[in-house]
Design a protein around this nucleic acid. Structure first.
Length: 220
DNA sequence: AACTCGGGGCA
DNA sequence: TGCCCAGAGTT
């Protein structure tokens, strides 16, 4: 397991690899971000960014989503997949916003997680990106790189990965940490093709060293 | 813990 | 054309 000092070194090095790591979803306010992150479940941000310009041009407020028919909303987000669930969740979530929060997006992770279609990851992204709440969103990228590097244990569940990251990274760096780990996982430490031979973190990476050793053995 | 929802993108 | 992508809800 990496020490706190090693984790902080790793995060710094990843920061140098991705100096402008930040939320890639198009949005201009907390409500749009919330919708974009809900839509992004189980699909790529790039795909979500293809539908949001038209979507946000058509729907400005929670009322707009409540008033539209389920079928019409489904058609508007059809290309991202899982569209029936997502359309249903967005209508339900919009209704909750109107009834419980005067049409505004709540700022706490706990309140966000009560909303339809909003789980741990989505709540953390919205809270941290839109409201500056300290949080580390653990998606599959963050989970994978945390396990490969040895920040946490292989058998840890999402909650444990999140807790370990929060323990090992100073609170004021949580938001940069989660964006950097996401970029690192998405573009470099990819699920099927980690770029170990050219990785600046190889020396401290548990999985990377194992893979390189295997590679070496295969060469001989 | 396992299962379901799903079309886009790439090889 | 088949595999990979990537969370939340339900049972």
């Amino acid at each position: 397991m990496l020490t706190n000092k090693q984790v902080s070194e790793a995060v710094t090095m990843i920061g140098e690899m991705f100096p402008d790591a930040e939320c890639e979803l198009h949005h201009s306010n907390p409500f749009e971000l919330l919708i974009a992150v809900v839509l992004s479940a189980q699909c790529t941000d790039a795909l979500v960014n293809k539908v949001t310009p038209d979507l946000f041009n058509k729907y400005k407020t929670p009322e707009d989503y409540v008033e539209v028919s389920q079928e019409e909303l489904e058609q508007d987000i059809r290309s991202i997949g899982l569209y029936r669930n997502k359309a249903k969740n967005i209508k339900k979530l919009s209704k909750s916003l109107i009834e419980q929060y005067n049409g505004e997006v709540p700022e706490s992770k706990e309140e966000l997680m009560e909303l339809a279609g909003v789980g741990r990851k989505t709540a953390n992204v919205v809270a941290s990106v839109a409201f500056g709440v300290p949080a580390i969103a653990v998606d599959t990228h963050v989970e994978r790189v945390s396990k490969r590097l040895g920040i946490c244990r292989w058998k840890d569940n999402v909650r444990e990965v999140e807790n370990t990251l929060m323990k090992k990274v100073p609170k004021e760096e949580w938001s940069v940490t989660h964006h950097r780990l996401i970029f690192f996982g998405r573009y470099h430490c990819k699920a099927q093709s980690p770029q170990c031979p050219v990785c600046p973190l190889l020396d401290m990476c548990r999985e990377g060293k194992k893979r390189m050793k295997k590679r070496q053995a295969a060469m001989e």
